[in-house]
């Protein structure tokens, strides 16, 4: 499972980073990026789902490998 952040949609709410700090980071301007090329280990799948479901900008999605 992988996640992707659309940097054009991200407005820096920081929800993903708060919910899944193992999977996301934000820069000084608040723009989020997925860590480890977006790879989600099985034990973090639930957190990844939360990040996707709580983003107010719909900026995070799952991608198929």
């Amino acid at each position: 499972m992988r996640v992707k952040v659309d940097a054009d949609k991200c407005e820096g709410h920081n929800r993903c980073c708060a919910l899944a700090p193992e999977l996301f980071d934000v820069d000084d301007y608040g723009t989020a990026t997925a860590l480890n090329d977006g790879n989600v280990p099985p034990e973090l799948e639930e957190k990844a789902k939360l990040a996707v479901q709580n983003c107010p900008e719909y900026a995070i999605e799952f991608v198929k490998d």
């Binding site: 407005e11 820096g12 709410h13 939360l50 479901q53 709580n54 107010p56 900008e57």
Partner: peptide, 14 residues
């Protein structure tokens, strides 16, 4: 769990 609220606004003026 699923709470995509927009209390802080949304879009470019978040």
């Amino acid at each position: 769990k699923k709470n995509r609220h927009i209390a802080f606004g949304v879009g470019s003026h978040r």
